[in-house]
Design a protein around this nucleic acid. Structure first.
Lengths: 160, 160
DNA sequence: CTTGAATCCATATAATCCCATTGAATGGGG
DNA sequence: CCCCATTCAATGGGATTATATGGATTCAAG
């Protein structure tokens, strides 16, 4: 189980924010000795984060997609790697957000972590709520289908 | 993972500039006792830099290409190997940029380092921002696809 | 000499580490 | 069923270390 659900946390005047315990335990369980996360600015007023494996997969996917076009591959690498930063966790599981990231997402004293599977988002609680609402509106139709597929998966893996 | 993210640094009147700490620590970790970097002028108003290993790989690639297109390969070799300079780090982790490099990239008092994996770029903050924006615009269309591919990649290596 | 480059040193600032405190959740005993 | 220990997550503050940057000194060459 990867980054799932939404958590709130405080952002102090040193721009430190505690990563949700569930996120941390997954980081430690999957990649061994993962004492850091990769964070980059999103396309809107939020940040996105993931572990090294996902970043590597993104980078690799970009290269695969642009095999015949070296310049496009370079652009993709720049878009992905150029903006991301490696943020290490302190003893209490906190990361320090760079000044530019805080202003990009318009963060103040409280932030929300939104799990999206292999990666997650960081935004103000207001923006996070808005994202969730938008997502609900857009996926109302698909949601039923996803639920049906999930039910079948669970039933298959279940001897009963 | 190698040179990642974007960092700013000052360029003083002796043309000294501090290499980002992350870049330095990677140099020290990978190549043993790397107290220098190779830097060359880029195709636009920026510089490019890397460690010896990447230069060697470039040289090797040029030779591979020479079988198909000897003239192009020679020109590329000349541009990269001939145009590059070995810049050593001082005790504080700074390099001195040659006059010609500074004018090629139009650098003044602040510069940006942009990590691109095995190599990096040096440009004015304005040029760096423009490069990043161009890269984002160019990748925007394929971004969703890249994320989908990355999700699949991560899931494949993952039992869950 | 004068110029430029390389090395060394000093310091303000920012990042990092460490520990104390709080509060919520957990898990028994009474 | 309630109360009290225990644990762990989260937070706040202070001390330590690293970093970035400016300046001084030495050295070699023209």
């Amino acid at each position: 189980m990867r980054f799932v659900s939404t958590y709130d946390a405080g952002l102090d005047d040193k721009r430190r924010v505690t990563l949700p315990a569930d996120f941390r335990s997954w980081l430690k369980a999957e990649g061994d000795a993962q004492d850091h996360v990769r964070v980059w600015p999103g396309d809107g007023d939020w940040l996105e984060g993931a572990d090294d494996r996902f970043i590597a997969a993104l980078s690799q996917s970009a290269e695969d997609l642009a095999q015949d076009d070296p310049e496009a591959a370079e652009a993709a690498t720049l878009a992905i790697l150029g903006g991301s930063r490696k943020l290490s966790l302190d003893g209490a599981g906190r990361i320090v957000l760079p000044e530019t990231f805080v202003s990009h997402a318009g963060l103040s004293d409280r932030v929300s972590f939104v799990g999206l599977g292999p990666y997650f988002r960081i935004a103000t609680p207001e923006v996070a709520a808005r994202m969730a609402q938008t997502a609900r509106d857009r996926t109302a139709a698909t949601k039923a289908k996803i639920f049906a597929m999930a039910r079948r998966k669970v039933r298959e893996g279940d001897p009963e």
